[in-house]
Write a protein that binds this DNA or RNA. Structure first.
Length: 880
RNA sequence: GCCGAAGUGGCGGAAUCGGUAGACGCAGCGGACUCAAAAUCCGCCGCUGGCAACAGCGUGAGAGUUCGAGUCUCUCCUUCGGCACCA
């Protein structure tokens, strides 16, 4: 006997137990046998175990679960794994704040969050779970590091970091607030230290080219990656200058430019503060030294550097223009980046906006060498056309006068090459990936520094280099560097005492290959095995994660996959790209509320501490704090974050309404790529819909068992209409899940269907059968989104059957057929009426019907239309 | 600053290939049921004018292409994401 009330807690527990007992989510490779289903590897970005799930996680993993369950019903062998991106800074921060070991804190968070994921009913194969902080995982990362190190794909060089002079520690960009260390408040400085780099630039060309082979990726993401890699062709050339000791012109200042056609307009050069020429000038000019010092102040974040006021000082050094022989002054500029190109640039104030403003600020000459149609050039104000390389033609450029951009670049590059002072070159914006971190809670870099043998990679048999889990975190410097028991070792080569590397790896390294390890998490003899070939053949079928990862994580993961391919780790399988299809989900946002405190700081209130007042039409007009009844300011709608106190804990939602309501709300509120605004009322609506669905099935089942309609017996006109609507919904939902990945419209289609189902007038046997067909279909259509309730309801409709084992409904083509169609009638593009014509009516027939219809009579006043536009199945437009 | 998106009723959103703007849901209003409330059910619900029939306007702003533009093109505004040590 079916329960009348929908009790989510009870049924969700029962259904989850059933799934556990039957191993419903286990994924097993189907390598042999007569029936081999297509595999479907559905991957969600693994969470950082920060404490508890947030709404963004719930959204991410619900999307993954919907697709997993849908493709399962479409006959696929589905793998949906889960793991933990367990290394990272927050664990060290928690250690500082609460005096708990980062490892202990992390494992406790994992246990809690795993329980939350299970409560949400995700069909995850937990036997494949992995945590990146486990030696079983990171040993293979260390192993691969040593291989890349030996190949020269990992190398050591100086890199710039944020340095907190008080805490004597390196800071992440996030820990630098308004140029000061977050804990000490000290002004942050740049500091150069030795770091390990991965040669991602060696793969720049392939990373760029392969974007064209990713049709399943959003164009937007591919474009961002393309721009990030930033391939440009230009000319690398040198300005010769007299070396300190001789006076013979043997030293050269190398620069790169994409605008070699403007080379005759160079009036100065600028070098980065870290450039050797700057150091040379600083040694003898205190003004330059002071400026170089000033450039050291502040952090390394590019956004800050790019918005900084452009400043510079002359070095007193002059170089020689390679073509004109003119003396060109060299400046130090705070806007020149040492890490990009040559760390030096030629400056053409006449035709580069940044150089223009710099030249005006410091009274440097501005020279016109490009002309567009004889427009007046003035050094007083910048105009867009000065930098126009499409229409620009060389002037005041001697032999290059009259040449267009490509011709001038070719000619100038040839002249420079003839003098041995330059050549055409492809340049990438992409820089090599610095992976050293001066932090404790990360994967140790497997290198030993020996006085005699240099940097020696740790041999295989000594791996993993275990990260000690009992440490003291002080917030100053790296804990490992204070632990002799960790760093004191012997050289693997010569056996003499040596020092172990105490830096750990960037956590992006762990997340660059975890998706391959899910295929074989239990293999302790190899990084990956042949099971990767099974699950990753043709790429991972679907990857789902936040849009904020569109560049870095996805680029690193693509790079790492290519590295593993080139190391021969995939055997005969060719895996060039890890992710065949990518879905980038939007963020979960909520309104913010605050008050300005007396010290000018904002105090943020959580949405549930606030009452919102509305006018008579429900428009919000103000907000008051519940506690004191006094007004609070309504802030922007922002990403849920602790700093804004606007987060809504998914756990309270699950506790109150159950997993299905949480899943339904989050999938219904917005399409996956868009940001999703939190709404308590929307949750209430989702819950109401599930109660309605339950009631509909309860009332239907209560009338006794019936067989569903077969589509063969004739139906009355209204029933035929309803059956058409049913099969239209079936077609739409399948298309929405599979092709469009628009779950909100799929849900809306089922809602419409159930509204119509509840309104079916008659209660005869024919209606009963049709309702049986509709309810069976509806529960299967909704099963991927709200599996617990649909599992339960389907078992009532078809006793003994498991909804999750059913084939996803397929629309009956015969039910979709119709014999009449309604067309819209427009006069001059304005909607004026409608008419009904046979579905197979020809153009002439439609035109005649349109001219004769009521709307035409009324608006044409007997006039003859100039033109009639007929769009079959849509509309007729009469133009007068 | 650079790169990438987004902007549609009171709100979340729909309109899939240039063809009926506002599906579906929320909120609101009116009614039924109830001693009452909750829940549930029925109806209304873009803006302006009008008793109404109806008319005009309407997809961030401005221009353009088209028989026809939320959708395409250009310019601008606002908001959001990323910027290499947050993950």
């Amino acid at each position: 006997m079916m329960q009348e009330r929908y009790e989510p807690e009870r049924i969700e527990q029962t259904v989850q137990e059933y799934w556990r007992e039957t191993g419903a989510a286990r994924a097993v490779e189907e390598v042999s046998g007569a029936v081999r289903r297509p595999k479907y590897y559905c991957l969600s970005m693994l969470p950082y175990p920060s404490g508890k799930l947030h709404m963004g996680h719930v959204r991410n993993y619900t999307i993954g679960d919907v697709l997993s369950r849908f493709y399962r019903m479409r006959g696929c062998n589905v793998l949906q794994p889960m793991g933990w991106d367990a290394f990272g800074m927050p664990a060290e921060n928690a250690a500082l704040a609460n005096n708990v070991a980062p490892g202990k804190w992390t494992y406790a968070n994992i246990d809690y969050m795993r329980g939350q994921l299970q409560r949400l009913g995700f069909a995850i194969d937990w036997e494949r779970e992995l945590a990146t902080c486990a030696p079983r995982y990171y040993r293979w990362e260390q192993w691969f590091f040593t291989r890349l190190f030996e190949k020269g794909l990992i190398y050591k060089k100086l890199g710039t970091v944020n340095w907190d002079p008080v805490d004597q520690t390196v800071l992440a960009n996030e820990q630098v607030i308004d140029g000061r260390g977050w804990r000490s408040g000290a002004l942050v400085e740049k500091r150069e230290i030795a770091m390990y780099y991965m040669k991602i630039t060696a793969y720049a060309e392939e990373l760029l080219a392969d974007l064209d082979h990713l049709p399943g990726w959003p164009e937007q993401v591919k474009l961002m990656q393309k721009n990030w890699i930033g391939k440009s062709t230009g000319v690398r050339f040198a300005f010769p200058y007299a070396s300190e000791d001789g006076g013979s012109e043997e030293d050269r200042l190398w620069v790169f430019t994409t605008r070699a056609d403007t080379i005759m307009g160079v009036t100065f050069c600028a070098v980065a503060a870290e450039h050797p020429l700057a150091a040379k000038a600083a040694a003898r000019d205190p003004k330059v030294a002071a400026f170089v010092d000033e450039c050291k102040r502040g952090g390394i974040a590019e956004a800050d550097l790019a918005t900084m006021e452009k400043k510079g000082v002359p070095t007193g050094i002059f170089v020689t223009h390679p073509l004109t022989g003119e003396k060109i002054p060299v400046w130090v500029g705070n806007y020149v980046l040492m890490g990009y190109g040559e760390g030096a640039v030629m400056a053409v104030p006449g035709h580069d906006e940044r150089d223009f403003h710099f030249a005006r600020q410091y009274g440097l000459p501005i020279k016109q060498v490009i002309d567009v149609g004889g427009q007046p050039f003035s050094s007083d104000a910048w105009q867009e056309w000065y930098a126009d390389k499409e229409r620009g033609v060389c002037v005041n450029s001697g032999k290059y006068d009259g040449m267009s951009y490509p011709a001038a670049v070719k000619a100038i590059a040839a002249d420079l090459a003839a003098k041995g002072l330059g050549e055409e070159k492809t340049q990438f914006r992409l820089r090599d990936w610095g992976i050293s971190r001066q932090r404790y809670w990360g994967c140790p870099i497997p290198v030993v520094h020996c006085e005699h043998c240099g940097d020696v990679p740790v041999p295989d048999e000594q791996l993993p280099v275990l990260l000690p889990e009992e440490v003291e975190i002080t917030g100053a410097g790296s804990p490992l560097a204070r632990m002799p028991e960790f760093y004191e070792t012997v050289c693997p080569k010569c056996g003499k005492p040596a020092r172990r590397e105490t830096d750990t790896m960037d956590t992006f390294v762990e997340s660059s290959w975890y998706f391959l390890r899910y295929c074989c998490p239990d293999n302790d003899r190899a990084m990956v095995d042949e099971r990767v070939a099974y699950w990753c053949e043709g790429g991972i079928d679907q990857y789902i994660g936040g849009i904020e990862h569109a560049i870095l994580h996805l680029l690193y993961a693509r790079f790492w996959t290519k590295l593993m391919r080139d190391a021969g780790l995939f055997g005969a399988t060719r895996l060039d790209e890890p992710f065949a299809n990518l879905l980038t989900q939007g963020m979960v946002v909520a309104p913010t509320f605050y008050r300005e405190e007396s010290d000018g700081k904002k105090r943020w209130f959580s949405p549930d501490e606030v009452d919102i007042a509305t006018d008579e039409r429900a428009r919000p007009i103000g907000a008051k704090l519940k506690e004191d009844g006094l007004p609070v300011m309504i802030g922007a709608i922002e990403k849920m974050a602790k700093s804004r106190n606007n987060g809504v804990d998914p756990q309270s939602l699950i506790d109150r309404y159950g997993a299905d309501t949480a899943r339904l709300f989050i999938m219904f509120a917005a399409p996956p790529e868009q940001s999703l605004e939190w709404s308590d009322a929307g949750v209430e609506g989702a819950s109401r819909f599930l109660r309605r669905l339950w009631k509909l099935v309860f009332e239907h089942v209560g009338k006794g068992c019936v067989a569903p309609t077969d589509g063969k017996s004739p139906l009355s006109a209204p029933l035929k209409d309803f059956r058409r609507q049913l099969h239209q919904a079936i077609a739409k939902v399948g298309d929405d899940y599979g092709r469009r990945k628009q779950f909100n419209t799929a849900i809306a289609a089922v809602m419409e269907l159930l509204n119509a189902c509840a309104r079916l007038p008659e209660e005869d046997a024919m209606t009963q059968g049709l309702r049986q067909e509709a309810l069976e279909a509806a529960t299967l259509l909704l099963y991927p989104i709200v599996p617990h309730i649909c599992h339960t309801l389907y078992a009532e409709l078809r006793p003994g059957l498991d909804a999750g084992q059913q084939i996803f409904p397929v629309a009956d083509a015969a039910a979709l057929e119709r014999d009449e169609v309604e067309l819209v009638v427009q006069i001059n593009g304005k909607l004026r009426g409608s008419l009904t014509v046979p579905v197979d009516a020809g153009k002439a027939e439609i035109e005649a019907a349109a001219l004769g219809c009521e709307a035409a009579q009324k608006y044409l006043n007997g006039a003859t239309p100039k033109k009639i536009v007929v769009v079959p199945g849509r509309l007729v437009n009469l133009v007068v």
